Amino acid sequence: MASRNPARPLSPHLQIWRWGPHMLVSILHRATGSGMATVGTALLVWFLAAIAGGAESYATFRDVFTTDAGNLNIIGYVIGIGLTACLFQHMMTGIRHLVLDLGAGFELKTNKRYAVLTMVASVTLTVLFWLYLGIIK
């Protein structure tokens, strides 16, 4: 039977840890990976079903993700920008993990700085990517 000794040390819990950017980046890495896999799979299935469904089905799919004559489809932009942001966040966090796997960046200040840099870099790359797409029309 387990004893209930109050002097026994307890394992660390979320209430005793201070929230930091390194924790946020870790959670974002998992969320972006799962999100890209889920949304990407759904889009692939929709794309394949649209192709199999004929010209009208494919036109509906295409119209969600393209603009014609200045008509903005907000759903396509939200999905596209969201997936792009997830891709860049996941990629930047993956690079951060590679640096950590090499044995560098474990100091608390450095670790937090790298975590903040991953978020700044992912937002910057997302904005630059969509600016680039807008310029090429």
Rank of each mutant, 00 (worst) to 15 (best):
W130G: 03
Y77S: 08
N73P: 02
G80T: 06
A31L: 14
A7Y: 13
V127M: 02
G20R: 03
R30K: 07
L117M: 00
V123A: 05
I79G: 10
I79D: 10
I136M: 15
A104K: 04
L102Y: 06
I75T: 15
S34L: 11
G54L: 10
K137A: 09
I27L: 08
N111T: 00
A115S: 06
T32W: 13
T66A: 03
R8W: 15
G70T: 10
M92Y: 00
S57K: 15
L100F: 01
I135N: 12
K112Q: 11
G33F: 04
V25I: 07
G53I: 13
T118C: 00
E107N: 06
I16E: 11
V123H: 05
L102R: 07
Y114F: 05
G82V: 12
V120C: 04
P9V: 09
L72E: 07
I16A: 12
H29G: 09
F65M: 05
N71S: 05
P9F: 06
R96Y: 01
K112T: 03
L10H: 13
S122P: 10
F65G: 10
I95T: 11
P6F: 08
A7D: 15
A55S: 13
T66D: 06
A50L: 09
Y58G: 05
A85H: 15
L102N: 02
D63L: 05
Y77V: 12
I79E: 11
M1R: 03
E56Q: 10
W46I: 08
L117G: 01
L102C: 07
E56P: 09
I51T: 06
M1C: 08
T32E: 09
Y114L: 03
F65N: 05
R18D: 08
H29R: 09
P21H: 01
L131S: 12
N73Q: 04
L98T: 13
L83Q: 14
H22G: 01
G33K: 05
G20D: 04
S122M: 08
T66G: 07
W19E: 02
T38C: 02
L100E: 05
A37V: 08
F65H: 06
R62N: 13
A50K: 09
S57D: 15
V39F: 15
L131T: 12
E107D: 04
V120W: 00
M23D: 01
R30P: 01
D101I: 08
A2L: 14
A69Y: 14
S57V: 13
L98P: 09
I136N: 14
F88G: 03
P12D: 11
T41P: 11
A115N: 00
D101S: 06
G94I: 03
G54F: 00
V123I: 05
A104S: 01
V127A: 04
G54V: 08
Y58P: 04
S11Y: 14
L72C: 10
I27G: 03
A115K: 02
A7P: 03
T93H: 08
K137C: 07
M1D: 08
R96I: 04
P6K: 02
G54S: 12
V45T: 14
F129S: 11
F129G: 06
K109S: 02
P9K: 01
N5D: 15
V45R: 09
G54W: 10
N71C: 06
G35N: 10
I81N: 10
T124Y: 01
G103T: 05
G35V: 04
T67G: 11
